[in-house]
Every structure is written in structure tokens, then in C-alpha cells.
Nucleic acid binder design. Structure first.
Lengths: 349, 349
DNA sequence: GTGAAAGCGCTAACAG
DNA sequence: CTGTTAGCGCTTTCAC
């Protein structure tokens, strides 16, 4: 077993040890490691480089972080009841966007999915191990407001996704999309065929503020038509394929098949489409169906679903960029960033 | 603006400041913060609690980490060319499983998606900011082997996913599934209908070792039948919906529609199904189609796809558990963990 | 160009 | 039960 192998179990090589081996001061090694190569002679530079590689030295970031009071990492807190929170395409995109941007800038993303009840005791909240926090909250208005208050008290720069909030003079930035407006566009689109009955599909679990606004927009859009349709709002439990289909089955049993089904996401819309098709109705002739948050897999369903695309990846990347800018300049350049949306005409309406 | 508000911009409150305010020693405050409440009198306990909350104290983990030489975080390195690497359902599940388990144990997951070319310069590789590393590699055999060598030299406990490797006496654990065997099962299943021509669908981007073994298994399974079918292997570029369909279009133009299409994942299988259906062929009567790595969204396709389910979430969770155990005991209890798979009979075969 | 001293905030170890 | 001392490994600062 060589020296190099032994390091796994033995103590790590420190800057000082490299310095001794290279017969220079720790400062010189530090300068080398940090790329300040001009601060030393050619000869010293080579000696240090050689010893670093021979001893297989790695910088200890804990020590560096302490000294510099910067952690070089950003926390991403995702409040959700489901352990598979990441499976949501929207969340996935936000995380990927943020993570990639941070990585490019030498930062890391600390990912933490957390149940609403564990929120207050999350390490990201009780101790300082990041330079800033990003959060995707869930729960009803009161719960989310409480979560925001908790996060404010942490005393770190904070970015929240999909919340309309009064940022006041706090160190907070809100990144969201225009939910009401996109819902309205979808509502108007459906209203063009003058449906007399419409069913909304939403999930009671993990209700986001965004979804509520989105539905209000859909109502406004639908009511802009000449004849105002009858609107029923259906709770699909977890929003899973099976929950959605069984909720809709019950709804249809009592009220019949509606003229339009508008879901707050594509997954529920597709579950509804298949159920309605299985009962012999055709889409869009008999029933119009719309989704939301267009995700890649919606192409697997037929007919192609009419939906709204949100730039979730860009929102995550932008969050990272704003956070880094905030860390450099001392304040957020914008307190609220609203992203545009894109209407996607499919064949389901 | 109160004192509490000001902390955002001002210096953080330290343990020492709390100690002074509560008129005790820093050690006592430290003991309180770490839950050693029995080490102090009721009266002191309350005074400390009060000052901590009044001053809004948060523990500085950088200092704690340095002192204790533990970082309380595990790195997850995902080597991939695509910035949306997380969109892959399999990856997502592994990350979610690991993240949740770590969070429950007070650890954080440091997520880093990285392009193969940037691998050597990743902060997770060049410095120490985690207690251990997990990695999902990609590239051809040589590239992945080089990645593993690089990771070994970091000198941290290492868990790699989906690699068959010679762990030797290194501090490495491999977590994978029996790819060959699951491919063989799928091959035998298809062989039962005695196809005379079979097309394999795989992606040249992000080729995993796992996929190669899987395809070898499929060949072995197919050749177990009485008549050995003609097998063509088709490269679908990125593996995206469009790339898959255009690759398959070209293939069919030259060789006609095969009796069976076997994809290395569900996404490509569904893209193929839709294309074949659009050309008037019916599934499974005219063409059998199989997928792999059953993911949630495959229910959106019709007919339901025959696939193999892998316990990706559990594999991620297990990785976290093994890593924590390794950190506690000093060595991995098992160097290689092979997970079972589940054959899912759909209506596409 | 190079080095010495000091200290970031916390906790292990021990003394009382 | 409470306090003191020392030091984790690095970098800031300033002196040479």
C-alpha cells in the first residue's frame, strides 16, 4: 500500500505539509493553489506543483470557507409531501437550471426536499451552511406565509419561486410567471367553442399559490365568452394518474361528460383524456381538454395536448444568476422577476 | 429596522456573543445548541435559550465542520452531456432517493451535473467539500474508467452507480442492477413469438455501461429461441423523440418494418410505437415493442408498454445508507450491491 | 518574491 | 454543572 492509497483512511494532506515538503511557506502553496502563479519564481512554482501532485493534495474547503466567510454553495429547499417531489417535471427543470448555472460559477447546489412539518428543523434553516437559499414552497396560504417568515429569519439572501409576495425591504427576490394571465389565455381559448359545462382538475396535495392564481385566470378567461359556462372544480387528491381518473369517474357519474376539461397540469389532463376516450368520447370533438406546464412526455399522449409552456429551466438558471449577483453586489437588482409563457396549440382543443 | 432585521447585512451572531449575553461560557451555549441540555441547570438553560432566540443565533457550520472534520454532506456527481440530465426519470429517482435519505439523517446532498470534459476540474474533485461521493458516470469504457481513477484519487469514500467494476481493496462500493439478466429476460420474452427480424434502439449520447450489458442480455435472450432472428442495432442519436423517429424511419425505409423493436428505454420505445402506428402497423400484432426502465409516464402511451422496472429510488436511498454506514464504521459493509428487477407485461408484446 | 503572525467560529479534552 | 485552553486548515495582512 503506497502513501497515496493510505490517504483514504489516514489523515488528509494539508497545505502545511505540502509547504514543508516543497521547502516553502504555507502562503506560497496557498497562492499556487489559488492560481496566483505570478507571485512566485518559476523554480518555486514547479517545486510546489510537483509536491502537490506527489502528495495528492486537495484543498480543505471547510477551512477555507471559515476563513473567508463564504460557503460557495446555495441551498435549494423544496417543500413537498411526496418523497418523489423531484419527479415533477417542473421542479426538475428548476433544479437543473439552478444547479448547472451554479456549477459553472464554481458554486454547488445543496438540494433538500422537505416535508412541511419538518420545515422548521431543517439544517438549512437552523444552521448556516449556504450563502443563500432558494425555495419552492407548498401548502395553503397560511402555511406558505409561515414558511417565508421562517426563511426570512435565517438572515440569508432568499429567492422564492412561484409566489406573489410583498418583498418589502427584505433581502428577498421572487421569481415567477404570470399565472393569472396564462390561465386567462387558456380560458379564453376554450371559451371560443362556447362550452356549457367545464370541469377543472387540480390536486389537493402540494397546492401551490401559482395553481390558485392559474385557476382564477381560467375562470376569468371562460367568463369572457358570450355564454358563461357552468364550472365545476374537481379535487383529484394526489393528482396521480389513478386518483385523477377515479375522481373524474365519480364526477361524470353524477354530472355527465362535460364539454371541456381543464387541468392544472399535463399529467392530469392526459389521465383525463384517456379516461374520456375509453368511454367512447372523442377529443376534441366531444370534449376539449387542456393541460398546463407543458412537459416533454406529453408527446406520448394522443391527440397532442393543448398546453402552456413555462420556462422552468430558465427560471432556475435565472435564480442562480440573481443569487450570485446578490452575493457580489450586496442586494438583488430586481425584487420580482416575472417570466413569459407560451401557448401551445395541440389537437385536444 | 430592528436588530434582528439588520443581521441580514451585518455580521452574524456568534456563539461567543450569545455566551456573553447569557453570561455563560461559550461551551455552555455550544452544549445547548447541540442538545446536551442535561449538562446545565434549568436556570442557565432558559437564559441561554432566551438569548439564542432573542439574538436569532444560527450555528456556523463551516466552523463546526472544520473543527470536527466532517462536512455533513455527500456529493452526487452526474456526468452527462445534456444540461437537462435530471429530466431522465432514472437519474431523478436516484437523486430523490439519496437526497431524502440523507436529509433524514441530517446530511445534505450536494448535486453537481457535469460535462465529461469538465470532470477533472469539478470542485467536488479538486477540493474536499463533502464526506463522500456518489457518481453516475457516462461515456465509453475508457472514459468512465478514467473518471473512476480520478475519483479514487480524491481519497473519499466512493459509490458508483450502474458500473461493474473491480473494486479491489479500494474504498469503493458499486450499486447496480443485473443488466445482462434483465436484458436476457426481455429477449426471451420477445423470442417466444419467433420474430425473424428485430431492431434494437439505443442512443449514442450518454452511453452507460449498463446499457451495453443490457443489450448483450437481449441478444442472449433472443438467441435462446429455436430460430435465431436477424438483429439490427440502431443508433438514435440523442435518444429524443424526434431523433428516434427519424433514425427508425431511415431504418424502415431500407429494411422494412421489423417484427420486433426493442428499445433500451421507454422513451425511445414509445416514440417508435407511435411512428409504427402512424404507418398503419398494429402493436403487438404486426410489431412487438419493448422498453426498459419503466417510468411513470409510460402510462400515457397506448398500448401499455412491456418494460422492466428498476428500483432507482431505492438504489439512491441505499447509496445514502451505505455511505453513512461507511462513514460511521470506516468501511463499506458490501462492495457490490445488485438490485433485483421486475418484468412488467404490457400490451405491446 | 517570500514568510510570520493572527484569527475565522466552533468544540474536544480536561480542570475545577 | 461550568469554564479554560488549544487548535481544526486556511487566508488576510503586513513585514521583509
Amino acid at each position: 500500500m503506497t502513501d497515496t492509497d493510505r490517504q483514504t483512511s489516514a489523515k488528509r494532506v494539508t497545505l502545511k505539509q505540502v509547504a514543508i515538503a516543497a521547502e516553502v511557506s504555507p502562503m506560497t502553496v496557498s497562492n499556487f493553489v489559488n492560481g496566483h502563479h505570478h507571485l512566485m519564481s518559476e523554480e518555486v512554482r514547479e517545486r510546489v506543483a510537483h509536491e502537490i501532485s506527489r502528495l495528492n493534495y486537495r484543498r480543505n474547503d471547510a477551512a477555507r470557507n471559515l476563513r473567508q466567510s463564504r460557503l460557495l454553495s446555495i441551498g435549494m429547499l423544496i417543500v413537498d409531501n411526496s418523497p418523489t417531489y423531484l419527479a415533477d417535471g417542473y421542479t426538475t427543470q428548476i433544479v437543473a437550471g439552478a444547479s448547472n448555472h451554479l456549477t459553472d460559477q464554481g458554486f454547488s447546489l445543496l438540494l433538500q426536499g422537505i416535508r412541511p412539518n419538518d420545515f422548521e428543523t431543517s439544517p438549512l434553516v437552523t444552521s448556516i451552511r449556504t450563502d443563500g437559499l432558494c425555495a419552492l414552497l407548498s401548502g395553503d396560504d397560511d402555511q406558505r406565509l409561515a414558511q417565508i417568515e421562517t426563511l426570512k429569519k435565517v438572515g440569508q439572501p432568499l429567492i422564492v419561486f412561484l409566489e406573489s409576495l410583498n418583498t418589502g425591504d427584505h433581502d428577498i427576490c421572487s421569481i415567477r410567471q404570470n399565472e393569472f394571465e396564462s390561465g386567462r389565455v387558456m380560458g379564453e381559448h376554450v371559451a371560443r367553442n362556447n362550452p356549457s359545462s367545464v370541469v377543472f382538475l387540480s390536486a389537493s396535495d402540494n397546492r401551490w399559490a401559482a395553481v390558485v392564481e392559474r385557476m382564477q385566470g381560467m375562470v376569468a378567461g371562460l367568463e369572457s365568452g358570450t355564454d358563461k359556462p357552468r364550472i365545476a372544480s374537481l379535487d383529484c387528491g394526489s393528482g396521480s394518474f389513478d386518483d385523477t381518473q377515479s375522481a373524474l369517474t365519480a364526477q361524470i357519474a353524477s354530472d355527465g361528460i362535460p364539454d371541456a376539461i381543464m387541468a392544472v397540469n399535463d399529467q392530469m389532463a392526459i389521465a383525463a383524456m384517456q379516461m374520456v376516450q375509453a368511454r367512447g368520447a372523442s377529443i376534441p370533438e366531444d370534449v376539449q381538454v387542456t393541460g398546463f406546464n407543458a412537459f416533454d412526455f406529453r408527446r406520448y399522449a394522443q391527440p397532442e395536448l393543448t398546453s402552456i409552456r413555462s420556462p422552468a429551466y430558465e427560471m432556475g438558471a435565472r435564480a442562480a444568476a440573481e443569487m450570485l449577483n446578490r452575493l457580489n453586489t450586496g442586494s438583488f437588482s430586481e425584487k420580482e422577476i416575472v417570466f413569459p409563457f407560451e401557448f401551445l396549440q395541440g389537437h385536444s382543443t
